[in-house]
């Protein structure tokens, strides 16, 4: 397959630098390091601001100086952001949003990967009528702006009583996760020798038994990438949670925007930034822990936007 996003994992990142070997410490060398260090500072700045502010007491924030290090360190904002900051009358902090996100995440990741793997498998190994048409429609679905789908989906969910339930959100994530998941597994299965499949067929394997017994166990590396991709993607989703989730199921991102909306006179920046870090924590941990897998995942899944 020649999908551009997939190209990246043909070439492992760790192969080693290809640029010229250093010729001592010349001005060019210093320039390169200066460029890299300045860039790194630019990328780190927001994370630094969030962390530093989240452990400052309000008295210090009032004095200004968003970028100065705290003179007193307090973890109270973190505690408050987690369990007692107010959204309107609801003073349970951001933790309900966290648990909502988890409740949305687990079934959505599971279902979307399962359906995607199954579809990718069917399209790769079995002769299906109009397979190209189906695949093209799926691809388009990955690229089109959500705004085209959203209103009819709202109406369909309302009519079926799914609106504002967790099922609506899970279903939505399956719907919009399907193209990328299918693409991912279709590409992966394209790399599996067809003879393996033929042998399984000769042994009397049927559609589902080959999938569960042979293909799924062989797909572990792709499953890992898919899980990383879906966990970060679904965790970071905002528009679906906002539109379909309703009050009781709003994910952490939606709740964060409500939490930081000023309700009292003084904005508690330290609490807000602590809540923001917490919301970013899950995908960041996935990223830092899984490193290279993550790079593969985003490259393959960035089409999802």
């Amino acid at each position: 397959m020649s999908t551009p996003p997939a190209k990246i994992h043909n070439v492992p990142m760790g192969e080693g630098p290809s640029g010229r070997a250093p010729k001592g410490v010349g001005p060019a060398r210093i320039g390169i390091y200066a460029f890299l260090v300045i860039s790194a500072l630019f990328f780190l700045l927001p994370l630094y601001v969030m962390i530093v502010t989240s452990i400052k007491p309000m008295e210090e924030i009032r004095l200004g100086g968003l970028f100065t290090l705290p003179t007193t360190i307090t973890f109270e904002p973190w505690a408050k952001a987690w369990s007692s900051a107010c959204t309107g009358l609801d003073c349970r902090g951001i933790s309900p949003g966290f648990w909502n996100s988890v409740k949305i995440l687990v079934p959505s990741v599971f279902c979307s990967i399962f359906v995607g793997a199954l579809t990718g498998y069917a399209l790769s190994f079995w002769r299906v009528r109009c397979a190209n048409l189906l695949f093209a429609a799926l691809l388009l679905g990955a690229f089109l702006p959500y705004q085209v789908f959203i209103y009819p989906l709202v109406r369909i969910y309302s009519a079926t009583g799914l609106f504002s339930t967790i099922y609506a959100l899970v279903l939505t994530h399956v719907i919009f996760g399907l193209p990328v998941m299918t693409l991912l597994f279709r590409n992966y299965y394209a790399g599996i020798p067809i003879d393996l499949f033929k042998a399984a067929r000769v042994d009397g394997g049927r559609f589902f038994s080959i999938f569960f017994r042979l293909m799924l166990p062989m797909s572990i590396p792709m499953l890992v990438v898919a899980v990383i991709l879906q966990v970060t993607g679904i965790w970071n989703d905002f528009i679906m949670g906002l539109t379909f989730g309703g009050l009781a199921n709003r994910p952490m991102t939606v709740q964060l925007t409500n939490l930081v909306a000023p309700t009292e006179g003084e904005i508690a920046y330290n609490v807000n930034m602590a809540a923001t870090i917490m919301t970013a924590a899950v995908p960041l941990i996935v990223y830092f822990v899984s490193g290279r897998w993550f790079v593969r995942g985003i490259a393959a899944g960035a089409v999802k936007g």
Binding site: T87, G88, V154, R155, S158, A159, L242, G246, L247, N258
Partner: peptide, 22 residues
């Protein structure tokens, strides 16, 4: 009680439920 913070969110939510038959 079904209180929704922010009328801009609450109104469409309610209208969608009314139109959707729920």
């Amino acid at each position: 009680d079904n209180a929704i913070v922010n009328g801009d969110v609450a109104k469409p939510t309610g209208i969608n439920r009314i139109v959707g038959g729920n």
